[in-house]
Design a protein around this nucleic acid. Structure first.
Lengths: 351, 351
DNA sequence: CTGAAAGCGCTTACAG
DNA sequence: CTGAAAGCGCTTACAG
């Protein structure tokens, strides 16, 4: 493999100059730079990441932590993040928690993290108190997307889960529904964490605003998956008189619920209306009404918020005006959601 | 940050011994090892990956290249791969090609790759001749999953695409269909590559075996996505008398086709039967008949085939009997597929 | 604008 | 079983 010495020799300069020229530092004359670039090209030279990282102290790598890459929201976020990260020259280290304690330890042990990456992106990842403390003490840049723990000093990009749930529930109320069930996350399920709490809160708030007292028997906890939604709907039916509408905390749960309802001989939306949250790729195919959230956009924006300060680091420049970056660091950036009405919601049948 | 010297000092040994003890090399006495481990624990020591890689010459990292992480098959493969890779102590560098030339260059420039990772996993990634040559000359371990280019010396895990397509088409024939359309990949679409050729071949073979001459007007090329499937189905309908059945080259295309058919006022399966390939998470919800392929299993198996030789490297041991590893390296490992009949396929209506 | 030299934090022969 | 020392291939003050 060609090393930096080879390039230096061919270009007739020192390795220091090669290093500077290749990284585009401004302190290299145009002619020298050209000579170095030509030599590097000719030798097909690529810098050794390990050596560069060890000497330079930065890894050019970002850890991206998601609960489950197979869920629509996370895959979509990661795809957007990957694009922007690679465009900016960063590598993406993927951690798929999947509820496995081992991965958690591996990624969230701060010493590991600190020597491995320049920054961390936590997508919908709740932290335990000890993990949060460790991460806070370390001064690694980071960002959180969606719900999960906030880390002091890290910006956060997300939607307003309470408002999304309120809108979904109100849509059902507006159609004339009164017996509206909710299926959402399980507190034991670390994938969901605050998302399900917020969405449940929005659901209840909308009901109360309509003068309806939330009925606990219509409120089921399950996993944020297709199967979780199916199980929750089945459970709902087993409890007796079915609701006329179901608000599921995510589209995958809604889809599972639709399957379970059909399996039980109920028609959607004639017998039961169903609405979710996400606007999953397949929501259109299934005719699922939903609250659309901008997944790729959250990934894009988060990557920018994460990378901008890193890029600025070499030359600190003027201190940003108070409130500029400060706001983003303290107050979550909320992206808008939007009600999308399709074929899975309709007025309840007259008795 | 604690360094290896700190641990060495606390344990009262040399850094060499710390290094050996922490990596579990056998040449360390039990008591010394215990002392080192205790010291490392106490100091919360984590090895510096950059330093370790530079000195040791191995990166502990695997590049995983997929066309689009948002497609069901790739997300499912990556989830399985991630689990096994992290279990074995490897980091996963994710490359989502997404048809972007830039990422391609980045990951497939061999010098980049060689210094960054110990091994490469290409999922359904076709290589250009120059890329293939470069990758072959480099002697990096690697593996390919699904279709795409074979790299000489790299094992390959996949399904038999021709057989899968034949089974799907025969299922439709068995139901009594004669006008069977096929929607599959576009040659310009690098995501698909040989997959669509093989599946088309299986489709035609099944037709011919039934005495039917393939009708080019029933054979549409489109992208391997929901939208691609929808467009292809719409195109099919625009061409005149619709087919009585459609075999789509993947479930996402099938789902898009179902949407387009419904939008055109046709019922599935009463007017048109539809079958796909994959057994996508949502195939059940949509009642989609399909040829199931084991995505996670392909990821798992590929990771094992990739890692086993790497683990063996430090201590080469006896040469494997001829044919053992050799077979896997030359002959693809074919995993079985299975026809899953749901509600989207039925006999054609009588005229 | 450029170079000589130290140093980043490990691992690996080599010697004992 | 253990240690002293060289070396992995860069980047970064420092000096000019």
């Amino acid at each position: 493999m060609t090393r930096i010495d080879d390039v230096a020799r061919l270009a007739g300069v020192s390795t220091a100059t090669v290093s500077r020229a290749l990284r585009g530092l401004p302190t290299v004359s145009a002619t020298t730079r050209l000579r170095v670039l030509a030599a590097a090209e000719q030798l097909e030279y690529a810098v050794s990441p390990s050596a560069s990282r060890l000497a330079g102290g930065r890894t050019g790598t970002v850890a991206v932590v998601v609960p489950r890459i197979t869920r629509w929201f996370f895959a979509t976020v990661v795809e957007a993040v990957e694009e922007f990260l690679h465009e900016a020259g960063y590598d993406l280290l993927l951690y798929n928690l999947g509820g496995r304690e081992q991965v958690r330890q591996r990624v969230l042990r701060t010493a590991n993290l600190h020597k491995r990456v320049d920054a961390v992106m936590l997508v919908a990842t709740p932290l335990r108190p000890a993990e949060l403390t460790a991460l806070t003490q370390l001064d690694l840049p980071g960002i959180t997307i969606s719900s999960g723990s906030r880390v002091p000093g890290w910006p956060c990009v997300r939607i307003d889960d309470v408002a999304a749930a309120r809108t979904a529930t109100r849509h059902l109320l507006d159609l004339g529904h009164r017996r509206i069930a909710h299926i959402s996350g399980d507190p034991d399920d670390e994938l969901a964490f605050t998302t399900h709490l917020d969405r449940r809160r929005g659901y209840r708030a909308a009901l109360r605003a309509a003068g309806i007292t939330p009925d606990p028997s219509l409120d089921i906890e399950s996993r944020f998956t297709i199967e979780g939604g199916a199980r929750a709907a089945a459970e709902l039916l087993a409890r007796g008189e079915p609701p006329t509408a179901i608000f599921a905390a995510c589209d995958e749960m809604a889809m599972g619920a639709i399957r379970a309802l059909r399996d039980a001989g109920l028609r959607v939306p004639q017998d039961v209306s169903v609405i979710g949250v996400d606007d999953h790729d397949l929501a259109g195919v299934l005719g699922l009404s939903t609250i659309a959230q901008p997944a790729a956009e959250q990934g894009r924006l988060a990557t920018r918020l994460l990378l901008d300060p890193l890029a600025a680091e070499p030359d600190p420049g003027p201190v940003p005006p108070p409130g500029a970056g400060g706001d983003a660091a303290t107050r979550p950036v909320i992206l808008p959601t939007r009600l999308v009405v399709r074929a899975s919601t309709a007025p309840p049948r007259a008795h």
